[in-house]
Design a protein around this nucleic acid. Structure first.
Length: 888
RNA sequence: GGGCGGAUAGCUCAGUUGGGAGAGCAUCGGCCUUACAAGCCGGGGGUCAGAGGUUCGAAUCCUCUUCCGCCUACCA
């Protein structure tokens, strides 16, 4: 006896159960033995500080769909999971905790602080992993990695040393972005520019030894304390007379030169630029070109240094106010304009960053970027959609050296030591005991740690065991695809490409699928400050994980932002319930089904049709998933399962399935139904893993897990255009009758008679075969074919066009049923529409150019259309005439 | 400043080599028809942002305009 199901699908009751089942059975684990073709995705490692947000949910759902799909297709599918130590973010979290205890990291000391972070990581760092499991992610957890575990740390060190030895890592004094709050250098990318309403201050720099002054414009007046020149464009006529002159720096009184530099834009402000080499990127470059000194007036806390004279010790913004006041009283503040400009902020804490000269470590990126550019240009690595290529090329071509040192404690400490005796710098794989140059043994290790993105740049090969040559590395590198949102294309993807190609000699992945960002229903980016965060866990609770995943897939059209809509989530929850009930129906009708008994029965037309459609849907699903058209795949499945399988196939087979049917026919029908349902579940499984597994186990003749059952293969032999045409005619006929009934306000309880007329014999034969379906599905009492009496005058009429030409007339006698006026209105509506289509076709065919230049098949098609429209219109017209006569 | 994307039904969006405008939700009408009211059946609703061009034919290709996003950039 088959099992039964509850009436409504209840997700929470089964989701946990099946995840445990899969994990316990080891079904997530890749074999890595070469017995199957490899397929590998490395997860974009979530930060250990993170908890699952919409972006993760989308990103990981898509990856899981791909991995489950490929696993079922017979690949040795490895989804490599892990987490990122997230240097600054994590340090900030732990520092905030310390602050609540009234402590700070300095009072703890470096070692104790790092220990504390590890403790925190052990306690709360795994939260997001639990949440990924909740989402159903089939990662190979037995291989889970962490960017600071022993193996990955070794990889980091190895790469660092190699790049240093190759001269691609260097240390030097350069201008960098500094976050005064995090107290660390930031890479250019880690600075977010935000438009701010500010002011442009016009400040007079008096000339030395002559009358007058040169006025400069600036948004940051406090930096004038660090000015070492004023620059003008060499050809600017206003300043030709002053070339070579000296100016007196306001407030401090220092003498600075007026220099010329072609980079100054004469049209901006006054055309005179104050040069602050220590605190401005542009000025830094000018100073290097012209050999100007740099004066550092801001320190690492954003406080004025002693170079700032009487302003020493002031906060940078307090200093700004003070200086403005002083300038005013000195009569040197010419004017102030409102000015909107963009201000750089720390991407972690949103503090305004300060450009600053500092000794930092850099990766020379030019020679690394070139091979990555080539890989994309030559198609060895595909960006999907390729609209991202432009941005990628642009960024990689103009890339600047990457500042990789951070002045924080949590991260990979830079493996460099300095000998205080002889200043020798040692960069080594193993901690050195003594200075190789002078033998001194009091070596000082670099206190800086590496940018968090340095270790994640190695992720695709470090997680597979590099620098060891593991079987995994051999088998799975290059990985198959990277799935990521575009916001970390440069942070992460580009750097993985550079590091992967340089270290491994081969791209880290063959394809990068770049998906959209999830926004709120108003299209706003979700952020804590806006308070518009939607919690994916809550949505899973409310709609079920399967419906949630299916929704994300259905939303994931390429190259577009995703707006979250609860209405659609509810729609896909209903879809899950529909699937559930289709299975419930199946199980209810299985009764005494015994698969062991032979089935000699031929396929019915409805069966041939559904099998034909099923195989097309399999083909479409494979095709769209391979092309990352997740929304298409979801749509195809939704449409087929609901509107073909449920709406028509299940309805059509009901008579054959009933206990009244012949036992052999019934058993045969059960067998095919099971087969189709089984395939549907497997097609759906990558999207909806839980419900499909649950049902799978309720079906007879299934074993093991659906997770490792084969994905339905398209089978062209099952393609059956004949059956499709036949069922299509039947569906059109039933729909036309339903339509007539509904438009004529015939209540469902009233059975009607239908007369069917046609010129050709074939459509009549076909419909005769399906008389039972017509009576049941269109609520018809009696169907009569070509009765000798002909169509009665008092009747409603509908014309079904046949794709191969010709038509079928459906006549519904209206004795005592139909309102003639209603029928006339209905006819008018239909004929209006028809006339418009007809006129359009006539216009086209009257055009000689169209006949001469359009492809023959298009012309032919148009002719057929015209004929069909004409035929239908003629019939409806004569019917209309009869109705009118009858009414009179 | 440079680049990219979007503007299609009331809402959210599909529409991939240019050839009969689609889906889901919403709406309206009718149904508790024994899998499902989270359901069934049927209907209405669109100068495909605007203008021009290419073409026999444009939502689709080209140009321009308007209005929204986003990315990127050292005009202080």
């Amino acid at each position: 006896m088959a099992e039964t199901l509850d009436k409504v699908y209840d997700p929470p009751s089964i989701e946990k159960k099946w995840y445990k089942f899969w994990e316990k059975a080891g079904l997530f684990q890749a074999r890595a033995d070469g017995s199957r073709p490899p397929y590998c995705i490395v997860i974009p490692p979530p930060n250990i500080t993170g908890s699952l947000h919409m972006g993760h949910a989308l990103n990981n759902t898509l990856q899981d769909i791909l991995i489950r799909f490929k696993r079922m297709q017979g690949f040795d599918a490895l989804w490599m999971p892990g987490t990122d130590h997230a240097g600054i973010a994590t340090q900030n979290v732990v520092e905030r905790m310390l602050a609540q205890e009234g402590k700070d990291r300095h009072s703890l000391g470096r070692e104790a602080f790092v220990e504390r972070v590890w403790q925190w990581k052990e306690q709360s760092g795994g939260q997001i992993i639990t949440q990924l499991k909740r989402l159903g992610c089939s990662c190979d957890w037995s291989r889970e990695r962490f960017t600071m575990d022993a193996g990955l740390s070794r990889a980091v060190r190895e790469v660092f040393v190699r790049l240093y030895e190759e001269g691609l890592i260097y240390k030097g004094d350069y201008i960098i972005n500094w976050c005064p709050r995090c107290q660390t250098a930031l890479a250019d990318l880690e600075v977010e520019h935000e438009p701010k309403d500010g002011h442009l201050y016009y400040i007079k720099y008096p000339l030395v030894g002559q009358e007058g002054a040169v006025t400069v414009a600036t948004t940051r007046p406090e930096t004038l304390l660090g000015d070492t020149a004023v620059a003008v464009h060499p050809d600017d006529p206003r300043y030709l007379a002053y070339h070579g002159a000296c100016l007196r720096l306001p407030v401090l009184g220092r003498k600075i030169p007026l220099i010329t530099d072609p980079h100054v834009a004469p049209e901006f402000g006054t055309g005179a630029l104050k040069v602050t080499p220590a605190h401005d990127f542009h000025d830094f470059e000018i100073a290097r070109r012209q050999g100007l000194p740099a004066v550092k007036v801001l320190d690492e806390q954003g406080v004025m240094t002693e170079e700032a004279g009487k302003y020493q010790g002031l906060d940078r913004f307090t200093c700004r106010e003070k200086i403005l006041k002083d300038l005013k009283s000195d009569g040197l503040l010419e004017k102030v304009e409102r000015y909107a400009h963009s201000v750089g902020q720390c991407y972690r804490c949103r503090t305004i960053v300060e450009p600053m000269i500092s000794k930092q470590w850099f990766v020379a990126t030019k020679s690394l970027a070139e091979p990555a550019l080539d890989a994309v240009r030559q198609g060895r690595l595909r960006l999907i959609p390729d609209s991202w290529e432009n941005s990628f090329f642009d960024w990689m071509t103009n890339i600047r050296d990457w500042c990789i040192s951070r002045q924080i404690w949590w991260g990979h400490r830079i493996p460099a030591w300095t000998c205080p005796q002889c200043q020798q710098v040692i960069v080594a794989r193993e901690d050195p005991q003594a200075c190789p140059a002078c033998g001194g043994n009091d070596l000082h290790q670099e206190t800086d740690v590496l940018d968090t993105w340095f270790s994640s740049a190695l992720w695709p090969f470090s997680t597979l065991g590099w620098p060891e040559t593991t079987p995994e590395l051999k088998l799975f590198y290059p990985t198959s695809v990277l799935v990521t949102a575009f916001d970390i294309l440069f942070f992460w993807v580009a750097r993985m490409m550079m590091m992967g190609i340089h270290t491994m000699g081969e791209v880290p992945f063959r394809e990068v699928y770049i998906h959209a960002l999830v926004r709120d229903p108003e299209g706003q980016k979700m952020s804590k400050s806006k308070g518009n965060i939607v919690d994916p866990l809550e949505l899973m609770d409310r709609f079920g994980t399967d419906a949630f995943r299916f929704s994300l897939a259905a939303f994931a059209a390429m190259g577009r932002d995703i707006r979250l809509s609860e209405e659609r989530l509810a729609g896909y929850r209903n879809f899950a319930n529909k699937v559930w009930n289709a299975c419930r129906f199946t199980l209810m009708n299985l009764g005494d089904y015994d698969a062991a008994l032979p089935d000699e029965q031929p396929l019915t037309v409805a069966e041939s049709w559904i099998l034909s459609r099923l195989q097309q849907v399999s083909a479409d699903t494979v095709k769209t998933l391979d092309a990352y058209d997740f929304d298409q795949a979801a749509h195809v499945l939704y449409q087929f399962i609901w509107h073909e399988f449920c709406d028509w196939y299940l309805e059509l087979i009901k008579p054959q399935l009933s206990p009244a049917a012949a036992p052999e026919a019934r058993r045969h029908c059960q067998g095919i139904l099971l087969k189709v349902l089984n395939s549907i579940l497997r097609l759906l499984h990558p999207f909806m893993p839980f419900i499909t597994e649950e049902i799978w186990h309720k079906l007879p003749n299934t074993q093991g897990s659906i997770m490792v059952s084969p994905f339905p293969q398209p089978d062209p032999a099952l393609n059956n255009p004949h059956a499709e045409r036949e069922i299509s005619l039947l569906m059109n006929t039933i729909t036309a009758i339903r339509n007539m009934r509904s438009e004529m306000n015939v209540p469902p309880a009233t059975l009607v008679d239908i007369l069917i007329f046609a010129q050709e014999a074939l459509p009549l034969e076909i419909l005769k075969r399906h008389t039972q379906a017509i009576t049941l599905l269109a609520r018809v009492q009696e169907v009569r074919f070509q009765p000798d009496s002909g169509p009665p005058a008092a009747a409603a009429k509908s014309v079904v066009l046949l794709p191969e030409g010709g038509s079928v007339d459906l006549v519904m006698p209206l004795t005592g049923i139909i309102d003639f006026r209603e029928e006339e209105r209905r006819l008018n509506r239909e004929m209006d529409k028809l006339s418009r289509d007809l006129a359009q076709a006539q216009r086209k065919l009257a055009n000689d150019d169209f006949l001469a230049k359009a492809p023959p098949d298009v012309v032919e098609k148009e002719k057929e259309r015209l004929q069909a429209f004409t035929e239908k219109l003629t019939k409806l017209k004569s019917h209309q005439k009869r109705i009118r006569e009858f009414v009179r």
